[in-house]
Nucleic acid binder design. Structure first.
Lengths: 251, 251
DNA sequence: CATAATTTTATTGTATACAAAAATAATAAA
DNA sequence: TTTATTATTTTTGTATACAATAAAATTATG
C-alpha cells in the first residue's frame, strides 16, 4: 500500500556494487522509465517511495533527482517534491530550435572528422533502428532513434556539444510523449540513411538541409497549439460545474 | 586552523532566509569566488570546511557542489572530493567552438526579436563594462563582459539556449583564468558596441562575422598549446630531482 | 449541507551519526 | 637513508533523525 501506483513501473531493480556507480544505475533506471513512457509527465516522484523501490536511502535518490532536474527531465518544486517534467509547447519549440542549430554545426564537423569506422557504426545503428521498427519494439526504436543523433555528435567530436545534445535528445523524447499527434513517424530511418549518405559524399549543404528538414518534420508531427495550458485554465475555472451539464463560461 | 587557506577567500557569508534560496545564495557565492579568481583552478573544496564557512551542514554544501559539477565549474572525483575545475586545452577549444555556433544562431534571432528596450539594455550594459575597465575593476569587468553575451541571448529569446550559454560563459571565465597569456584584451567593449550596431542595422552577415571574430580573438589570446599537461608530466617524472640542479631527463 | 478553521498526517529540507575509503603519519625492515 | 608496511587520521558516502512545510482529514460553524 505504501508504494503507490505511479512508481510501480520501476520494478527491475539492480542491486549494483557498492561503488558510486550505484548512483548511475538508479539514474539510468529512472531516465529509461521516463523516456520509455513508463512514468508519465507530471507523475510525482516521492523520495521515500523511490528509496524503498531501489533499496537505498532518500539521500541517494535526492542526488539522482537533482541530476535529472538539471537536465530538465524532472521538475523540483521547493517543499513540494519532484515530478516528471511537463515541457510546455514553448519549451518544446525551443528545444527543437536548439537542436536544429547545434546539429547543423555538428554536421559540418562530422563531414570533416568522419572515418570508415565512424560511418560504419552509424550505419549499424540505423540498421538496428529499422529492425526495431519492423519488430514493433517501440521502446527500442525511441532509444535507437535518439542514439543516431548522439553518435553523429560523437563523430563531430565536440564533447561539450555532445553533452548539450544528449540533454536535448532526452527532452525531445519527453516532448514527443506529451505532444505527438496520431501515430509516430512512418520511418525516419530513411531520413537518417540519407543524412549519412550526404555526409559521406561530403555534400555539406545537402546534409544540413536534410537534417533541418528531419528535425522540422519531427516538430511538425507535434501538436504544439498551446491546447495544454488552455485545458488547465478551463479545468480551474470550470470548478463550479461538477458533472457534465451545460457550460456557463463563454467559449 | 581548521579552515584552511584556499577557502578563506569566502568570508562574506549571507545568512539568507530559511527558504530554499539559501541554496542559491551559497551557489552564487561559490560561483563568484571561482569566476573572480578567488578560488584557483584545482583548489580542493572540502565539504566540512565549506559547511563551517557558510554555517550549514555538509548536506547543503553537497547539493551546491553537485550543481556546480553539472555545470563543469567543479570536478567531483568519487571518494576524493570536489575541486575547482581545470579545463584542458581541448575542453577550452570545445567551449569556444560551441560558443561560436550558439552565438551565431542567437545573433540571427536577436536581429528578429530586437526592441528599443532590449537594445537600450544592451548598450547600458556595454557602458557599464567600459566604465569598469576604465576604473580598473577587473572583477566587475569579467562579470559584465559575460553579461553582454547573456543579455544578447535573452534578446534572442530561447531560454534553452540561454541556459547553455550561461554555462559556457562561466566556463569561459575559468578558461581565461587558466590560459590567458599576457594582459587581458585591450577593449572588447568596442567589439560589443560594433555587434550591437550591426544588429540594429539588421546586417546579419556582418553581425555574425563580428561575433565570430570577437570570440576567435578571445580564443587567440589564450595559450592553448597543451603546455599544461606537459608540465604535469614533467613534474611527475622530475620527482627524483629535489632542488635546482641539472636535469637528467632528455629535453 | 456547505464552508471555514483546526488538527492530523505525510513529505520535504537539514543536521547528524556511522561506515567506507583515501590520505597521512608512524614504524619497521633493508 | 630509503623503502615497505602498518596504524592513524581525515574525508567522503550513506542512512537516519528531527524540524519545517505542505497536504489531508477532521471538526466546528453558518
Amino acid at each position: 500500500m505504501s508504494r503507490t501506483a505511479p512508481t510501480a513501473a520501476l520494478k527491475g531493480v539492480v542491486k549494483a556494487s557498492r561503488t558510486t556507480s550505484q548512483n548511475d544505475s538508479i539514474y539510468n533506471e529512472m531516465l529509461s522509465a521516463i523516456l520509455e513512457q513508463r512514468l508519465a509527465p507530471g507523475t510525482k516522484l516521492s523520495e521515500d517511495t523511490l528509496g524503498e523501490i531501489f533499496g537505498v536511502s532518500r539521500t541517494v535518490i535526492r542526488t539522482v533527482l537533482q541530476r535529472l532536474a538539471h537536465e530538465k527531465i524532472v521538475r523540483i518544486q521547493p517543499n513540494r517534491g519532484a515530478f516528471v517534467a511537463e515541457p510546455s509547447p514553448e519549451e518544446a519549440r525551443e528545444v527543437m530550435q536548439a537542436r536544429r542549430l547545434i546539429e547543423e554545426g555538428m554536421i559540418r564537423d562530422a563531414i570533416r572528422n568522419q572515418s570508415p569506422e565512424n560511418i560504419g557504426e552509424l550505419r549499424r545503428s540505423v540498421a538496428a533502428e529499422r529492425l526495431s521498427l519492423e519488430k514493433g519494439d517501440h521502446e527500442a526504436w525511441v532509444r535507437l532513434s535518439g542514439d543516431f543523433h548522439l553518435m553523429l555528435a560523437a563523430v563531430a567530436g565536440n564533447k561539450t556539444l555532445l553533452a548539450f545534445l544528449k540533454e536535448l535528445v532526452s527532452r525531445t523524447s519527453l516532448i514527443i510523449v506529451q505532444y505527438q499527434k496520431g501515430t509516430l513517424s512512418p520511418c525516419s530511418c530513411d531520413e537518417h540513411t540519407e543524412i549519412i549518405d550526404a555526409i559521406v559524399a561530403r555534400n555539406e549543404n545537402h546534409a544540413i538541409a536534410l537534417m533541418k528538414a528531419h528535425l522540422k518534420a519531427c516538430e511538425d508531427q507535434l501538436n504544439l497549439c498551446e491546447s495544454d495550458e488552455k485545458a488547465d485554465l478551463y479545468s480551474i475555472f470550470a470548478k463550479p460545474i461538477k458533472e457534465a451539464g451545460k457550460s456557463r463560461t463563454a467559449m
